[in-house]
Amino acid sequence: MITCLGPLALTGCTGSDGPPSLPPTGVYDHDAAGENSQAEPAPTDGVAGALARPLREAGWFCAQVRANADGRALWCRIGRRDETDTVSPQVAQFLLDHDDRLAWGWFPPSRANQEDDQVAAAAAPALSAIWPGAGDRVRQEVGDFDRDLETRTTRRGDDIPRTAWRDAHADYSYDGHNGLVVTARDTSVRRWPFGSEHYATAMSSAVDDLLAGGYDCFYPPQQSCDRPQSNGYFRVALRGDQIVSAQFGIGSRIESGRQRHPLSEEFPHGLTFLAEAVRRPVTERIEQSRRSGTGFAGIVAGTVMIIDARRGVAKGDDLVAYFDIQIGVPLAAT
């Protein structure tokens, strides 16, 4: 075991020159390798099931979001509400090889400022389920790092303070910006899965419809569009021109049992950024939440959907609400 003392605790205790790159170099530089972008519930058995189980028990939603000939990607997410009813999401990502061994994991920090450390709280039970002792070491290293950081009054240079360690299973890197990155020592996936054609189209084919709905879009290169008249937004994660995930915000106003803000105001031709096969069921699920003012986290027609609802004052059957909607999941480590 390598022990870090003094200033070294903030800059790492391995021989690494810096934090691992996100994503690791070259993992997406390949042609399609049996890509499958149809999401399914995270496994309940094997290593994948063991990783997801403690997160699920803590209220997270977990799914296998894509796979290919070399590996599969798992994605877990939980949304916590603050005193203003705003949802602060936290995610965890795992990449497993075709033999169901963990090759890589990432626990980014939540955007919310929490008193207790959410990264260690998520990572420790998940990793302990497959690697004995790994979770205790994560809690120790992250706790020591955070305490050391709080007591320091100055910082050397422009580097983000970080720490790193290794055990028999993996190399670990942690900092307040990227969170915890875990790279297995004896397992790797050469070609990471990148598929999304099952549920999404190309951004270039969707721009005109977004413009018709009142969005300010300048693509390329802009990947985030705004709709000033409704405080709406639309942003995507891309691989080339292919949409990998999309997020947008839209309101709902139900009066006398009728929707006074139809989806067609913002998407006059429908959700054309989605593949035709999934467009109708995904739209129906969105409209169900907009009618009821409720959120959702699950899989619809093989597509991951997250709907966070902020509901205003309701009178009788009337309601006003705003929804942050995510369809699909970005590529691992992006």
Rank of each mutant, 00 (worst) to 15 (best):
R80C: 13
A69C: 06
G49V: 00
T86L: 11
R81V: 12
T84V: 14
G49T: 08
V65I: 12
C62Y: 03
P20M: 10
V27W: 07
P24Q: 05
P20I: 03
P43H: 00
V27C: 02
S37H: 08
P54E: 01
V47T: 14
L51I: 01
A50W: 02
A63G: 03
Q38I: 14
R66D: 09
I78G: 13
R80L: 15
Q64T: 07
T86I: 11
L74D: 09
Q90D: 09
V87H: 07
A50P: 02
P89G: 07
A67N: 03
T84H: 14
A32C: 01
R66S: 06
W60P: 12
L22R: 07
D29P: 01
G46H: 01
N36C: 10
P23L: 00
Y28I: 03
C62H: 11
D45E: 15
G71C: 08
S37T: 05
L55V: 06
P23F: 05
P54H: 04
D29H: 05
Y28R: 07
A92C: 03
Q38M: 12
A39Q: 02
V91Q: 15
G59F: 02
D70R: 02
D85S: 15
A69F: 08
H30G: 04
V91G: 13
D29G: 07
C76N: 12
C62W: 09
A32R: 06
E57R: 09
A48M: 09
A50S: 10
P41G: 05
R72S: 15
D82R: 10
R80Y: 13
E40G: 12
P54Q: 01
V47S: 10
A58I: 02
R56M: 11
R81N: 14
V87R: 04
R56W: 03
S21N: 13
Q64M: 09
A42E: 07
